[in-house]
Amino acid sequence: MITMKDIILDGHPTLRKIAEVVPLPPSQEDQQTLKDMLQYVQDSQDPEKAEKYGLRSGIGIAAPQINVSKKMIAVRVTDKAGTLYEAALFNPKIISHSMEKAYLTTGEGCLSVETTIPGYVPRYARITVKGYDVDGNEQKLRLKGLPAIVFQHEIDHLNGIMFYDHIDKQKPLAPIEGATPVDR
């Protein structure tokens, strides 16, 4: 079981490394890590379990955040229409994206960043992600709105990029021109 003590914090060198591709078919160890990551996200969203185990609520996690420099992410997020997007993927890649941008009006947060960093993070409004599920089967997901933003945030972790790297340092809270504001 992954707990808060397993999550490394901003400044740890693993968060800035480019993660390694997971060989497929995945090993049992890699499968277990991916399952544990999804379990963390699920448990962190359950108020009773979150309190019992002292978990910070999250909607996504990437393997580098638990000091495993491998291309693995787990996401569990609901869009505006109430549709649940839950995925645990090996080697996720954005294979296409819109030209249109979007950003979260609340800014972004991260399990590895304990402070609030104000600012808008420009993201693609729509993306298609390809990856492999826990059994090594190819998955393709077409995403927009909050789910698209969350997947981009987690995939950034696999490339050593933190969300605040995208924030305009001069005008962090200036609306992003031509981008769609997204409410949680």
Rank of each mutant, 00 (worst) to 15 (best):
S44C: 09
S44I: 04
Q45M: 06
Q45H: 07
P47D: 11
P47M: 06
E48G: 09
E48M: 09
E48V: 15
E48W: 10
E48C: 07
K49V: 09
K49C: 07
A50M: 06
A50Q: 05
E51F: 15
K52S: 00
Y53G: 00
Y53W: 10
G54A: 06
R56D: 12
R56P: 08
R56V: 15
S57H: 12
S57Q: 15
G58C: 01
G58V: 00
I59C: 10
I59F: 15
I59Y: 13
I59R: 11
I61K: 01
A62E: 06
A62C: 11
P64L: 13
P64R: 12
Q65V: 01
Q65M: 05
Q65T: 03
Q65H: 00
Q65Y: 01
I66N: 06
N67P: 00
N67H: 10
N67E: 13
V68Q: 03
S69M: 06
K70T: 07
M72W: 00
M72R: 05
M72Y: 03
M72E: 01
I73P: 00
A74E: 07
A74Q: 09
A74D: 03
R76D: 02
V77C: 13
V77E: 09
D79C: 12
K80E: 11
K80W: 11
K80A: 12
A81C: 10
A81S: 10
G82L: 14
T83K: 12
L84Q: 04
L84G: 02
L84F: 05
Y85I: 04
E86V: 05
E86F: 00
E86R: 05
A87G: 00
A88C: 03
L89A: 00
L89Q: 07
F90I: 02
F90M: 04
N91R: 09
K93M: 14
K93P: 06
K93T: 13
K93I: 14
I94C: 07
I94A: 08
I95G: 12
I95D: 12
S96E: 13
S96V: 06
S96K: 09
S96P: 07
H97S: 14
H97K: 12
H97A: 14
H97Q: 13
H97E: 15
S98Q: 02
M99Q: 12
M99V: 14
M99K: 13
E100M: 09
E100F: 05
E100L: 08
E100D: 12
K101H: 04
A102G: 09
Y103R: 07
L104H: 09
L104G: 03
L104T: 07
T105R: 09
T105Y: 00
T106L: 00
G107C: 03
E108F: 02
G109K: 03
G109W: 01
C110D: 05
L111G: 10
L111V: 14
S112Y: 12
S112Q: 11
S112P: 15
S112K: 09
V113K: 06
V113E: 01
E114N: 10
E114G: 15
T116I: 11
T116K: 11
I117F: 05
P118I: 14
P118Q: 14
P118Y: 14
G119I: 04
G119A: 03
Y120T: 02
Y120W: 04
V121C: 08
P122T: 04
R123M: 08
R123L: 02
R123I: 05
Y124G: 11
Y124C: 15
A125D: 15
A125R: 13
A125T: 14
R126G: 12
R126P: 09
I127A: 11
T128F: 10
T128D: 11
T128H: 14
V129K: 08
